[in-house]
Every structure is written in structure tokens, then in C-alpha cells.
Amino acid sequence: MHIIEAKQIHKNYAIENREMRILSDVSLNVIEGETLVITGSSGSGKTTLLSLLAGLDKPTGGHIFMQGQDITHMHEDELAPLRNQTIGFVFQSFHLVPSLTAIENITFPAEICKDRRAGQKAQTLLERVGLLGRKANYPHQLSGGEKQRVAICRALINAPRILFADEPTGNLDSENGQTILRLLLDLKTEHQATLILATHSNKIAAMADRIIMLKDGRLFEERQHVG
């Protein structure tokens, strides 16, 4: 069963009156429960593809289906419930709300959908990632690794079916990066989610079920991981 289908998607950006093609004719299917890694060199279009698949951006051409539903031309407010409950996103730069504490950042998506157990769920997740003692800390009081763990908890609080991660270890040192990656994969398994991860690291790519490689905005190679 395909949880996401992308059909012949194109993406152009206008940069100072110049039209730049970022993605060209990319088609791919994401199977429910798999760990898909999108890899490629810097500027190959990984983040753009991830943003399009997650409904954070709209393609210039082509169609994207999520759970069979065409999300290509959906209005921001129509996408809101999907972003809230179907997907979770972990960013390279964490993007935690600076005015909220760690636990408030985590409970926030659950509170949007009026989940009465938001606090309890956030506590459990914080405990799971070893940050219960820092729940009242603001983002600026946390280290990079801690911020990313909070971001992962936030992405998982509504038990999304799809988890997107854009270079989740890009801003971390190797030890912290390893820990975060392990945590992400473990939690993905625990929550039986689909993980779509963009990275340029071959080491991380090696942990995937399937890898697709982008080069100059085109799908260059797709391979199943057999390790």
C-alpha cells in the first residue's frame, strides 16, 4: 500500500527574476511502514522534495497523493489537519517555538487537536528521550542534541503515520547525531510510522529500507537496502 504517491512533480523557484528549476519530473511511491532515505549532494533538491511530500510546499507541476488524497492544490487550512495528525516533521534547525518550554513545544500539536491527554503523552515521550528533567527549560536553555530530541517528541506526539526528517543530525556532533538517529529509528518502529528522511550522509542512508538518490533535481537512482 502506498502511503504517498508523487507523480511527475516539478518545482521551480523564481530568484530575482530568474526561474530556477529545482526538481524535474520526479515520480515516486512511499510504502507504508518503510524507512525511505532521500539522498544526494547539497543543492540536489532533497529538502524541496521532502517539503513537497509533506505538504509544506506546492509543486509547480505534477501531483502528490497522501493516503490516496490529492494534496497538490489543497488550501493551507485543508492541509492543517494533515500536518497536525498524519505527519510529523523533524528539521535540521530544530525550529522549536522560542517562547515555549520543552514540554509546551511538545504538547502544542496535541492541544491543537484538543487531545486531553497531551500533557501525559508529552511526559511519556520526554521520559523516553531522557529529558523529563528539562521539561520546563526554554529552547535557548537546551543543547543542540536536546533540542532535536524535543523536536522528535513534538513530531511524534500525535502518533503520525508519516515522519519526515530533514537532515536531523546536520546540526549535531557525530556522537549526538548517532544517538538522535538511533532514537528516531527506534521511535519510528515503536509508533509503526513511515519514515522519510533526507540526508547526504551515506552512513545514515545505510540504515534505510530503500534509498532514492537525487542529482540536479532529477531522480538519479533508486535502490533497496539489502544489508
Binding site: 487550512d77 492543517a80 494533515l82 500536518r83 497536525n84 525550529h95 522560542p98 491543537i112 500525535n158
Partner: peptide, 19 residues
């Protein structure tokens, strides 16, 4: 910028414009 950041985070996390 801080407000835009908040608005974007809210959107990414599933909040509607009205919210």
C-alpha cells in the same frame, strides 16, 4: 520575524490560519 516564525511553526504543526 519572530511572529512569522511562530506562524510558520503553528502551520507546520497543523494550526489553521484562523487559529
Amino acid at each position: 520575524i519572530a511572529r512569522i516564525r511562530e506562524a510558520v511553526y503553528y502551520k507546520v504543526l497543523g494550526a489553521r490560519r484562523s487559529f
